[in-house]
């Protein structure tokens, strides 16, 4: 559904952002795109949606070249950017103006999502708080029923109940023919939501695995006091105890701690990623 081959991208000649980046994302999944600040998560989403053009390499989305911004490509892709334009109209009017551009838009779904987020459809967008605007925009994005849904820091500005509601709604819209990519640094917001993790670091994708594969290969252990001898691939210690990532030698899948996994991949890249290479599968 999304295929990136040998991508090279830079904003200026000195500092490359991506070099020989390869990534394949399939339909039927919710991907969590993780990376430190400045690694290019937003840029990658912009490249996929055709807002930026690669310097070298190829990007294919739904079999189309995003650079061309063809109408049928745009009808099937929605990017919820971190900051977005808010026209001075009510949510009802907003849907009236923009929904007709999306052939699969469902007005009932839109009302339902707004209700779930507790946002009034008659409110003017300019009068809303940042969190309210975001919820309204996400409701519209979900109701467009595009095959590719890209979300950049979608939970920024949301309160805790809204984050829970967000997870519930995203889980409800996931379908076999849809690919959802959520980029965030608030990894806890993705717990129990995503089914694959993509980590961006050092100009490349350094990790792209399903949650199932991760829970089979790795176990996430928390302990009080001192470590009682577990051999960790990566460990974080605190005053009262610690937690770490170990190789999962049992047949029972573990519960994935996304935050710990991300820190582990960034700190001990080879130790962890080697477990997922073909020879270790």
């Amino acid at each position: 559904m999304i295929a990136i081959k040998n991508l090279y991208f830079t904003y200026n000649k000195r500092d490359k952002l991506f070099e020989d980046l390869n990534l394949t994302l399939s339909e039927g999944h919710i991907y969590g795109l993780l990376g430190k600040n400045g690694t290019g998560k937003t840029t990658l989403l912009s490249l996929v949606s055709g807002l930026l053009f690669p310097v070298e390499g190829k990007i294919g989305v739904l079999g189309k070249n995003p650079e061309k911004r063809q109408v049928d490509f745009l009808q099937n892709l929605f990017l919820v950017s971190e900051e977005f334009d808010v026209p001075d109209v009510s949510l009802k009017k907003y849907a009236m103006l923009f929904a007709s551009f999306y052939p699969h838009f469902d007005a009932e779904q839109y009302d339902h999502y707004l209700k779930e987020f507790d946002v009034n459809v008659n409110t003017t967008m300019h009068k809303m708080s940042m969190g309210q605007r975001k919820k309204a925009y996400i409701s519209f994005a979900l109701a467009c029923n595009t095959r590719v849904l890209l979300m950049d820091e979608p939970t920024n500005g949301m309160d805790i109940p809204s984050k829970a509601q967000f997870r519930k709604l995203i889980a409800s819209v996931a379908s076999k023919n849809r690919c959802i990519v959520i980029s965030t640094h608030q990894v806890r917001d993705l717990e129990n939501l995503i089914d694959a993790i993509v980590v961006l670091d050092e100009h490349q994708i350094i990790f792209n695995e399903s949650i199932d594969a991760i829970s089979e290969k790795l176990s996430f252990v928390a302990y009080n006091g001192t470590n009682s001898g577990t051999q960790f691939l990566y460990e974080e210690t605190a005053a009262l105890g610690g937690k770490g990532i170990a190789k999962n030698d049992s047949d029972i899948p573990s519960r994935v701690n996304i935050e710990l996994l991300f820190n582990g991949i960034v700190a001990e890249k080879e130790q962890i990623t080697d477990l997922f290479t073909d020879k270790n599968r």
């Binding site: 055709g50 109408v71 950017s81 551009f101």
Partner: peptide, 16 residues
């Protein structure tokens, strides 16, 4: 004049 507005224009499903 703004990145936000450019984004929404470029992603609108209408031809250039």
């Amino acid at each position: 004049l703004s990145k936000k507005k450019t984004t929404s224009l470029l992603l609108l499903p209408a031809s250039r």
